[in-house]
Simulated scan of single mutants.
Amino acid sequence: MLELPMRNDTSRKIIHVDMDAFYASIEERDNPSLKSRALVIAHDPRQTGGKGVVTTANYVARQFGVHSAMPANQALRLVPKRLLTFKDPDFTTYRAVSDQIHGLFHQVTDLVEPVALDEAYLDVTANHQFRTTIALGLWLQDQIRRETGLTSSIGLSYNKFLAKEASEYNKPQGRTIILPEQAQAFLDRLPIAAFRGVGAKTAPVLEAMGIVDGRTLRTFSQEQLITRFGKMGLLLYQHARGVDNRPVVVRDAKSIGKERTYQPFLASEDAVQRELDRLAQMVAQSLAKHQKHGKTVVLKVRDADFNTLTKRMTQDAYFSGAEAILAAAKQLWQGLDHRPERVRLLGITLTALDPQQYENIDLKL
């Protein structure tokens, strides 16, 4: 078999951002007493008849071997009961924080590919705002921490495969850059189980073939790997040589939102109104950047005791400007059954988004 020729595009600059224990970190941020606990984001199996799987876990729980996709019952066996806390996932909150972080991504590039709520690829090849890509990555990490109180790990390289490997290399709060001239040495040392796409079933098969790292993987020809693993074999051959020419794929956002956690708490009506105004302005700016508008405004409020309230308003006409979004948010605030005296968090999100195309723009006649 003739080996397929490979083109290796090393001209791009790709950042992979991966939030550290994202869901668990949000829960710890909003309830600091959880930081000393082994926090598992899952339904408590003692209340579900043993059903359910782990969504994620904080780093305390991970020290006991707990990981995502593990049966919740197994986590119950691994962690001492005096340390263990199960917490039902709160995806409404997680999505809002994710939207906030993705808003920061779009401040530096329009080429953003979300992978999940907690990670994304950014193509910053055309960056003109920062002196270097490293400076851009450091700014992102710092802004995420300032805006959300959460930490992230970033990987920088010339393609998506290497950027992802780099972000995984030094978690949590890691930053790793792999330059084109460094890629081969990095990959040669990388354990085969750490290669993206090599799962728990494939790794033992490769190891049985004598493939234990990137260096030994490179000793196998393209024909050998494709014969044994099909399309996956070609990917292994390419990845062992640092080749991945996939572009960053932009996807439409389903919602755009901004939220803030306050310390000290907001303790007056004037303070709440000022923050609603600020959040509405930020949401409107993000909508304009993405050329979107939407029909549903969602207000999120969390009080000093971590009680979270959400209320939404949907109308036939589109919300887009800050004035209309603020008016809706104020109305939702006034309509809360119990407005808290001390506010820990405020958020405004616009959903039911559509592009601002000629045929669906509301004209005031």
Rank of each mutant, 00 (worst) to 15 (best):
G50N: 08
D99Q: 12
D213Q: 10
L190Y: 05
L104C: 04
T125S: 15
L83T: 01
Q184F: 11
D316A: 15
S25K: 03
L336A: 13
L234N: 06
K201I: 13
M209L: 13
P340Q: 02
V205Q: 13
I15L: 13
K289H: 13
E3S: 10
N8D: 14
F186T: 06
H43Y: 11
K171D: 11
K364A: 13
G257D: 04
P191E: 06
R344D: 14
E323A: 14
Y262K: 01
P340K: 02
A267Q: 13
D362W: 10
L187M: 07
F105V: 02
A61E: 03
L326T: 06
A304K: 09
Q141Y: 00
M209I: 06
A193S: 13
E28Y: 10
E113Q: 15
I101P: 02
L365P: 14
A185E: 14
D277K: 01
V112D: 01
P5H: 08
A329K: 04
L190T: 12
D354M: 07
K295W: 03
K311C: 08
A328M: 05
D305H: 11
N73G: 13
G197R: 05
N307M: 08
S286M: 05
A194V: 02
V60N: 05
D88N: 14
R260I: 08
Y237G: 01
A116I: 07
A61S: 08
S167H: 04
R241Q: 15
P32I: 05
A304Y: 01
K258F: 00
T85W: 01
